[in-house]
């Protein structure tokens, strides 16, 4: 199969993720969309690795996974504590950080 198709898939997934981040209000969904964007990037990296015949892209994909895992830990903790105090997971409710 032509590896370029994987790139199309990655672009599609990234776009879906980005649109989700911009449109959805629920923090959990937003988080999932971010994960989707990260995985789209991973897919692109791995595809490029395959296309170019070296392992750099695959190594970076591992790094991305580690970072994403760490991010999930911290992010979920924040969302849970936010939900506990506000009884809502909407990101628009947390709009106090402004002048």
């Amino acid at each position: 199969m032509n590896p370029v198709n994987y790139l199309y898939l990655a672009a599609l997934l990234f776009t879906i993720g980005a649109a989700g981040v911009l449109i959805r209000r629920n923090a959990i969904v937003l988080f999932m969309c971010v994960e989707l964007m990260l995985n789209a990037c991973n897919l692109a990296f791995v595809t490029f690795s395959r296309m170019h015949g070296n392992l750099d892209g695959q190594i970076i994909a591992f790094f991305t996974m580690v970072v994403a895992a760490a991010e999930v830990v911290v992010g979920l903790a924040i969302i849970v504590s936010l939900f506990r105090t506000r009884h809502s997971a909407s990101v628009d409710d947390a709009s106090l950080m402004k002048l």
Partner: peptide
């Protein structure tokens, strides 16, 4: 511009 909505920041980032 600085309205506190994370999503609008995201839009400007994108």
């Amino acid at each position: 511009l600085q309205n506190g909505y994370a999503r609008s920041y995201a839009v400007s980032m994108f």
